[in-house]
Nucleic acid binder design. Sequence first.
DNA 1: TCGGCATATCGATCATCATCAATCTATCCA
DNA 2: TGGATAGATTGATGATGATCGATATGCCGA
Lengths: 122, 122
Amino acid sequence: MVHNGGMTTLQIVESTAAEACCTPSGMQVLGADEAQGKAQLFKALADPNRLRLLSIVKASDGGEACVCDLTEPLDLGQPTVSHHLKILVDAGLLHREKRGTWAYYSLVPGALERTADLLSAL
Amino acid sequence: MVHNGGMTTLQIVESTAAEACCTPSGMQVLGADEAQGKAQLFKALADPNRLRLLSIVKASDGGEACVCDLTEPLDLGQPTVSHHLKILVDAGLLHREKRGTWAYYSLVPGALERTADLLSAL
DNA sequence: TCGGCATATCGATCATCATCAATCTATCCA
DNA sequence: TGGATAGATTGATGATGATCGATATGCCGA
């Protein structure tokens, strides 16, 4: 609100869900739909155990780890770890590959960097 | 877990709460305390309305905005906006300056960039 | 000093989330 | 084929969070 009686110059840019992840060129401030999608990504990062999962996977030999690698260091039950991994996969941060009995998780290349860019581009 | 019967090579590095935000040089994976602190920061970003608040403040004239600038575009009640702003201030992302009756909020310089760096450095 | 305005805080409510125990599915091996 | 193992799914529970109405605080102008 401008206290000299003038109009505010802010422009709210709305967008459809389909284009929620690509930024319109003329955008001034984040629209509701884009904000929703980006918040979803940060929600995936807003848990200490999920941050540790990403860190352990990144530091693991070969850049991948299976669930049994991740249960012990986090001191969580296997279903809970599996649940967190699913959230990270759904967010596009982790990749899941099943080989035989084991499921191997690895970082999606560039995903963390793209997420970081979201912040600078806010 | 290494399936050839050998020991795992992962090292968990713990740290006290006091040093939760500075990364020890020899660190391999995120310890529980560091993860806690970093998750707290991402929690502040994990809400679409708070992302829009940051975006509006950043795009505002002079880089600052008061609560009455922010209530209308978000279509939220004033107490709710005030609540979100407090979370962003507590997270170190926004700065609050009271001038007369109005409270002006502005981005903490470099805060978003530092948060982005947390991701690349995971 | 008083009334009005901007903002903050409080208390309650409803929704979301993290976690676990139990169970299910799929794969491997004997 | 049957048992064992890795991982996913389900259902329940306790905790955390977003939102609002009501109220408190603090500042300004008459």
